[in-house]
């Protein structure tokens, strides 16, 4: 009986082996076969993510990174922070208890590229914004073990000495607009001024930031230094906005609680 059940499969393998025996004489048959076989899965999994509307939630209050925050994000990438810190809270109870409401797709809608990460040598940072003071963040980046003795994080004291390159920001925001981030002409043109302004409260430049990016924008001396705008300013400004681009995740949780 076993043999009878298997016989169609045996015939199929027989057929397959015989066809293959002929096909493998042609390099182009193999080439086309490989491309087709390997093409299906990627197409079926990726293409619909661009067309199915429910993939990314609608969040009308979703805001963009300011030039200073985007500059900080670029530093985060440059230093490889993503190798040890995820920015993706999974839909698991312990993660929600530890880090906050689980991450939504819309929160990284404008993240080119996304920084969801793959490893937590350090904790998740998706909602680290405003959990610690600027002062704490700066001290922790200068010497992590002065703040958390058990930490294995590298020191980033040099960020406080490096003046931030703001001149390239208009070009960077422009490139971001080309890949789909809706920066306005005004925001792009003033990117360099706004980047400085966000780290210089009570100045004319700071008013421009509020005007172009909204009154809720964090405008502070992030690194505590008043003499110049450093890479530390940018990185801390970025860390402090993580999880703060939209209120939707916290609403989702309260809705589910009802």
């Amino acid at each position: 009986m076993f043999r009878k059940i298997l016989s169609p499969f045996a015939r199929m393998f027989e057929f397959q082996a015989r066809t293959h025996y002929r096909a493998e004489r042609h390099s182009m048959a193999l080439t086309v076969g490989i491309i087709l076989a390997a093409g299906v899965g990627g197409f079926v999994e990726i293409a619909p993510l661009f067309t199915i509307d429910e993939t990314v939630e609608a969040a009308p209050d979703m805001r963009l990174y300011t030039p200073l925050e985007q500059a900080g994000r670029d530093i985060y990438i440059r230093e490889g922070c993503y190798a040890c810190h995820s920015q993706m809270i999974r839909t698991l109870q312990d993660e929600v208890d530890r880090y906050g409401p689980y991450s939504l797709a819309v929160e990284s809608q404008y993240d080119h590229p996304m920084l969801w990460g793959s490893k937590r040598t350090g904790p998740d940072l998706a909602r680290v914004g405003e959990k610690f003071s600027d002062e704490w963040q700066v001290q922790h980046l200068i010497n992590p073990r002065a703040v958390v003795p058990e930490s294995v994080m590298p020191q980033y004291a040099f960020l406080l000495e490096n003046e931030l390159d703001v001149e390239s920001l208009p070009a960077r925001l422009h490139a971001l607009r080309r890949v789909g981030v809706p920066y306005t002409e005004d925001q792009i043109d003033n990117a360099a001024i706004d980047a400085r302004g966000q780290a210089r409260p009570e100045t004319e430049a700071a008013d421009g930031v509020f005007q172009r990016f909204g009154d809720d924008t964090n405008v502070r001396f992030f690194d505590g230094r008043r003499d110049r705008v450093t890479e530390m300013d940018a990185l801390v400004a970025y860390l402090q906005i993580l999880g703060g681009l939209t209120d939707l995740p916290s609403q989702t949780r309260s809705l589910e609680g009802d």
Binding site: E45, I46, A105, R172
Partner: peptide
């Protein structure tokens, strides 16, 4: 898309969930 052809920095064409899946 490179930020400038005179520099190394570029921004991925995809963002967020689509970028994660592609990656």
């Amino acid at each position: 898309v490179p930020a400038s052809f005179a520099g190394a920095k570029s921004y991925s064409a995809f963002a967020g969930v689509q970028d994660a899946m592609t990656q």
